[in-house]
Every structure is written in structure tokens, then in C-alpha cells.
Design a binder for these strands. Structure first.
Lengths: 106, 106
DNA sequence: TTGACGTGAAACCATTTGGTTGTATAATAA
DNA sequence: TTATTATACAACCAAATGGTTTCACGTCAA
């Protein structure tokens, strides 16, 4: 859980807690404490998850007074989107195959 | 690396080796040995990765003679696709915001 | 100025992860 | 029949991961 290595977006997004954090940050800026309230794990654990998300570029933060506010940056998710695009026709093929079968039945 | 627990598709896809395996299996069925040739890690390691992919439903296998052939099943990737759809307008917003800025400049 | 609040940082810890080597066994080619 | 090939399985290992507790420190409200 060390923060020095740049986290891969795929890896960052692999954890359910981190996905939930991204969801909470969709639209609004929230502080660590506020975010933590929705989880059963400690504030420290949430801080670590946020650092991982930040090192993957999925969130950005700024210190305001005594709090640190985090906000979503969805751009790195485009990488996942592009990666997925390649596989899209593989699951669509299944559908078109099914379509053919159904058409043959009629 | 135990295989009993069902692997999450997000987790399955988080590893670069496993993503490469999926790519190799796009379109064609390949045996473990054949797949292994393209990696620097051992065949055993590849077998374990394939088991993880299988438990996530991303590949299916069948034993043919003395080999085990694996093939891609992209369906579980739809889960990732749906998940991503929610964030799509967050990176699109950036573009439309940029567009607004550019328009104002003109 | 004094607590309470929000965070940062360090030290630890158990489990999971990704990898290895070695042995056993069924299928195939000579 | 005898190697050789392709796996399977078990045991083991170091490092990464997700988590904790404790303590220190700046900020803000009374």
C-alpha cells in the first residue's frame, strides 16, 4: 500500500472501496472525514485509498483550511474505455449469433 | 492466488499478464503451453492466471487430448462497460467545458 | 487560550498475490 | 515399449495489499 509507485488505473479501480469513493466524488468535492463516514474501515485506510486513486490520476486534492478536499478526475478512465472497445465486438458477436439462431427459428 | 473464491472481473483484469492473455485469446483457442511461450514467467504461473480468468468467467477451457484449450468469453466485460458508462459524461464534460472556453475566446 | 477537529505520518500486522521448484500422471510420437 | 509432451498439483516464498493503532500538529470555534 505504499504510495511512491504510480498506480495503474486498472489496479486502482480493482478495489470496491476505491470504486465507491469515485462514485461518492462524482459531482461534488468531499473531505476525507466526510468520505470516511460511509465506510466501516478507518479514516486512515480511506486516506490510503485516496492516495492510490490520486497516484492513478483519478482524483485530485487540495488542502482547504484544516481539511483536504478531493474531487473526481475521470479522464484516466478513458484508458479503460479504449481497452474495452477492442473486446466490445466479442460480446456483440454473441448477440448477433443469437440473433441469427432466433431468425432461423422463425 | 488460491482459486476457490470467485474472482471479480475488475480484479481479474487488473493484472497486465492477464490482460495480455485475454488479448491473445481474442479470436482463437490456445493451449497453456502455447500461451506461456509469450511470457517470461513460468507455465505454472500462466496456469494460475488462467484459472483466475476462468473463475471470473472471462475464459472457458476444455481438455482436448493432453492439452487444455482456452478461449475468450468477453461477456463479463460488459459489467465493466456498464460501470464505465456512469463516468463517461464526467470526462465528456471536460471536453464541453473546454469547448465553451474556446468558443468564448473567438 | 483551550479544546475539539481534521489530517499526516510512523510502525505494525495478517492475508493475498504473483511467482517458483519439484513430483506425478495421462496422452502421443518414435 | 519408451521417450517426450502437456498438464496437474503440492509446497513454499517474498513482496504487495488492505488494514490497524498511536502520536504529533496545524486550524478553528468558544
Amino acid at each position: 500500500m505504499e504510495q511512491s509507485p504510480r498506480y495503474d488505473v486498472f489496479q486502482a479501480v480493482a478495489d470496491p472501496t476505491r470504486r465507491k469513493l469515485l462514485e461518492m466524488l462524482a459531482g461534488k468535492q468531499l473531505s476525507i472525514s466526510t468520505l470516511s463516514k460511509d465506510f466501516s474501515v478507518s479514516r486512515t485506510a480511506i486516506t490510503k485509498h485516496l492516495r492510490i486513486l490520486e497516484s492513478a490520476g483519478l482524483v485530485q486534492s487540495q488542502k482547504v483550511g484544516r481539511e483536504r478536499l478531493y474531487r473526481l478526475d475521470a479522464k484516466p478512465l478513458q484508458t479503460v474505455h479504449h481497452w474495452l472497445a477492442f473486446y466490445e465486438h466479442f460480446w456483440e458477436d454473441k448477440l448477433s449469433n443469437l440473433k441469427k439462431v432466433v431468425e432461423k427459428e422463425l
